[in-house]
Design a protein around this nucleic acid. Structure first.
Lengths: 356, 356
DNA sequence: ATGAAAGCGCTAACAT
DNA sequence: ATGTTAGCGCTTTCAT
């Protein structure tokens, strides 16, 4: 690979001039610029990104930490992030932590600030302390999908009102007339889907219902998780007429369980999820769900990250604990509200329940 | 972020020694090593990857070019690649070309050789000339899923016998007794799925059938593509009893179309795909498909790429066209054979066809 | 066993 | 408008 100086020699100028031409900085004569460009073309020169990064003190990539790239949500999200990142002149490094905080830490330690200028975090199972440390080392961190807008995480984030999402899903089911609703909390990690669950409980309360523990299951955030949880739920109480899952994947699993049990969706069992991932549209029957502004959140996250990068290119402020001192609270953007998308997986319960 | 020299100063040694300690090269005294490690710990030092890359003349990442990260095949594949890459000490940069050769070229030009040490290419819609150029510039390229083992691409590759895959799918359908089979070639890009199609034709011939053009549709490699192709096919000839799609996604779409048409799968319509992506297992009925050794191919590809990187760290050989000159043919590894996975989407046709 | 010095390819002041 | 000089943070001979 030819280097800058080779191009310079070839064009009979100095490296600095070539650099200026290439980045349209400084003043360069028309004739010189032409000669330089010619030399670049002739030699097939491409700038060495690592060298440039080193000289500029900035990195050409941003990192996206995801917990499981196999979950179809992440590719959709990553796609949006990648677009936004590219638009801002960055490449995207995808760090798949595989739900392993150790691996997550390893990634952060290695790339943050040296290969990547900033870090985007989805609901990866990461230690907040690690993230703060990364921040303190000078690589901005943005949480991409903060679930509790009312409860700031102490890190910059884009928040989505998932409590509202849970509420909308619940209210939809109640309005349809469901009274015995199985709930699948699609997250092994305690707390992550708490807001969604709380929202559902809000809706139940508003309808004068409560949510007995017997109707709630914790499950892995996978089709299979939803599948087993549903069978379990239905075994415990066959009179359940609807399933609310805090994520689409388990909701899809619920539909499968219904199919295997010989239950018709939505006649025998209604199913509603949250997110509106692609497979939700593509299932048969198509899944009713609460759509979350994925692409918007991705763009906001990249924008926020860029601002932080531009704003703080210097060393991290003081050595003192940022959270403890009187610094301004980290920024938070709120993405637009989730929206109910009614498709074919929900309907009024077949026989009205006798309850109450 | 602390630098090497700061650590050195802190430990009362020179940068070179710290470097040696950190990479366990050269000889270092026990006592010194301890002091250095202490300093590293105390300062929270992390090596600057871009600087190291520059000094070493190598890059810490490899790039994976994919045409559409939204296609569920790629995440599965990327996951396997990422594991293998990490094991070899590389990070993974995912380059989503979005089926756009322009964008693909832009990625190649920018990162290959400067940010990424090598490039892995899936069936991204890329110009081979661009890939050869990348290679010539010193960044090895490996094709991850070459479809025609008999027909070397002129680039290093790991090949999968997709013709066999098509054959297995076809034979399965014929054995079940199907005679009127709709074929969906799931690729807008002419040629990419040719081997799969040829394999199917092999099977048809062997069963004494031919494949009328009226029974073949070209479609986008998506659920929706398969959906419309199936409706189209069935409209053209309602007596079709089975669909073979060259990829799982369109096959899944075929099942949806059947559902929307009130057709029972597999009683009224059998469906078979190729690949065995996750959603194939998760659909209802579960999709019969020909499983392709995805993870194995990913690992082979990374291994091959590493070998090329180690083997050719120097400038690319001559300026002459590598393909034209008498150089050894690029390496090709063959991944193990595809296997038929019979699930619930195929069965004997309901009424035996009268044909022939 | 450790240090000194040069250099990877580029950018960024500052001169001229 | 172009050239000169440092230096980014690290590795790598080669001395000592």
């Amino acid at each position: 690979m030819p280097t800058l100086s080779e191009v310079a020699r070839h064009a009979g100028v100095t490296p600095a001039t070539v650099s200026n031409v290439l980045r349209s900085r400084g003043r360069v004569g028309e004739e010189t610029r032409r000669r330089v460009l010619e030399a670049v073309e002739a030699l097939g020169y491409r700038p060495h990104l690592a060298a440039r990064a080193l000289a500029e003190g900035r990195a050409p990539t941003i990192a996206l930490m995801v917990s499981s790239i196999a979950n179809p949500f992440y590719p959709e999200f990553a796609l949006a992030v990648e677009r936004a990142a590219r638009a801002s002149g960055h490449f995207l490094i995808i760090c798949n932590t595989n739900e392993d905080p150790q691996l997550g830490r390893a990634y952060l330690e290695q790339i943050a600030g040296t290969l990547s200028e900033g870090v985007l975090v989805t609901n990866a199972n990461l230690d907040f302390a690690d993230l703060r440390l990364t921040e303190a080392r000078g690589a901005p961190v943005v949480l991409c999908m903060w679930e509790r807008p009312l409860d700031p995480p102490g890190l910059p984030c884009v928040a989505v009102d998932f409590r509202l999402a849970g509420q909308l899903a619940g209210a939809h089911l109640m309005e349809l007339g469901h009274r015995r609703i199985g709930v699948i909390v699609g997250s092994k990690v305690s707390g992550i889907h708490a807001a969604r669950y709380d929202g559902f409980v809000d809706a139940a309360r508003a309808a004068g219902l409560d949510v007995p523990a017997a109707h709630v299951r914790q499950a892995a955030d996978t089709v299979h998780g939803g599948y087993t949880a549903t069978r379990d739920l239905l075994e415990g109480d066959p009179s359940i007429t609807a399933i609310f899952a805090t994520n689409d994947l388990p909701a899809l699993g619920a539909m499968q369980a219904a199919a295997d049990l010989g239950l018709d969706v939505p006649r025998d069992l209604s199913v509603v999820g949250i997110t509106d991932i692609l497979p939700a549209r593509e299932s048969r029957p198509a899944l009713t769900t609460v759509a979350v502004p994925t692409a918007e959140a991705a763009e906001l996250a990249v924008t926020l990250l860029r601002e932080l990068i531009e704003g703080a290119p210097h060393e991290a402020a003081t050595g003192t604990d940022a959270a403890a001192s009187g610094q301004p609270a980290p920024r938070m953007c709120l993405a637009s509200a989730p929206k109910l998308v009614v498709r074919a997986s929900t309907a009024a319960p077949r026989t009205q329940s006798f309850a109450r």
